[in-house]
Simulated scan of single mutants.
Amino acid sequence: MSEEWLMRQEPHAAVLVARGLVEHPERLDHVLLDDEEGWFVSDGSEFGEDPELDEEQFASMCLHDVVELMPQLTALAKLPAGMGADWDTGGSTWVLISPLVPSDDEEARAYREARIAAWPHAGSPMDEVNLSLGLMEISTAPDAPARGVRYVSREEDGTWMFVGFEVADPDEETEVEVDTLELGHVAELYPDVVDLLDAEPGEVFFREAPDAEWLQVIDDGE
């Protein structure tokens, strides 16, 4: 290959792709990266209960060919296993998702149990947490600013909130728009928050710049 390979998986790794995308890659709708780092790339089609119909709708391709067809996939090179992303064509942006209805077969249960056993912090890596919208999006624009967490709080009920630098001042922002991801996925996407994940309920942290030291907010924030 003449260009640097950006994806974490091997170029010839098998990818399950909606057949309609081969002729119409502009119809890309969403992707999923399974627990074993296998890609599923869809135009909105989903698996059903009819194997023959599934075979008609989906085909196996090598990852290199899929990336050539839909180069915006390279923006997801660091996507954690078990996550997905919806493609926003208008904004040329990926919107991150943690699948809401995990599989309940024996293998999936074993994977979840292993994640919980390996989690070194309070709670579970599958706890649902709030993130400001800028932290949920991965832009494919070459001049897009780097994403980073500016503000971390653990509410009295144990709920987590992560706010990015796209919010000017979380303390003055009465309505921060949020969406949710799994806590374990947040830790992988934003590893510089990991040291804060043992915070007690009610603790709040912030920093002035992405490379600045985390500071704890005491009482009224002074």
Rank of each mutant, 00 (worst) to 15 (best):
E4H: 12
W5E: 14
W5T: 01
L6R: 14
R8N: 14
Q9A: 15
P11G: 03
P11I: 03
H12Q: 09
A13M: 06
A13H: 09
V15K: 10
L16E: 10
V17N: 01
A18R: 00
A18D: 10
A18P: 02
A18W: 06
A18N: 09
R19D: 12
R19E: 14
L21N: 02
L21V: 01
E23K: 15
R27H: 13
L28S: 06
V31Y: 11
L33R: 15
L33A: 10
L33D: 12
E36H: 13
E37T: 01
W39L: 03
F40C: 08
F40Q: 11
S42H: 12
S42Q: 08
S45F: 04
E46P: 00
F47R: 11
F47Q: 14
F47S: 03
G48C: 13
G48L: 08
E49Y: 07
L53S: 07
E56Y: 00
Q57I: 02
F58E: 08
A59D: 02
S60I: 13
C62K: 09
L63F: 13
L63V: 00
H64P: 00
D65L: 05
L69P: 02
P71Q: 12
P71D: 07
P71F: 14
Q72S: 15
Q72Y: 11
Q72E: 15
Q72L: 08
T74A: 12
T74F: 09
T74L: 13
L76F: 15
L79R: 02
P80F: 07
P80A: 06
P80W: 05
A81H: 11
A81L: 04
M83Q: 06
A85C: 12
W87K: 06
W87H: 01
D88F: 10
G91K: 08
S92V: 00
V95E: 15
L96T: 10
I97L: 07
I97D: 12
I97S: 14
P99A: 12
P102Q: 04
P102K: 06
D104H: 09
D105R: 08
E106I: 04
E107P: 02
A108Q: 12
A110P: 01
A114F: 02
R115I: 01
R115Y: 04
A118H: 05
A118P: 03
W119E: 04
P120G: 05
P120W: 05
G123V: 11
P125F: 12
M126C: 05
V129F: 13
V129P: 10
N130V: 00
L131S: 03
S132R: 07
L133Q: 15
L133E: 13
M136F: 04
M136K: 09
E137T: 12
E137I: 00
P142H: 11
D143R: 04
A144H: 07
A144R: 10
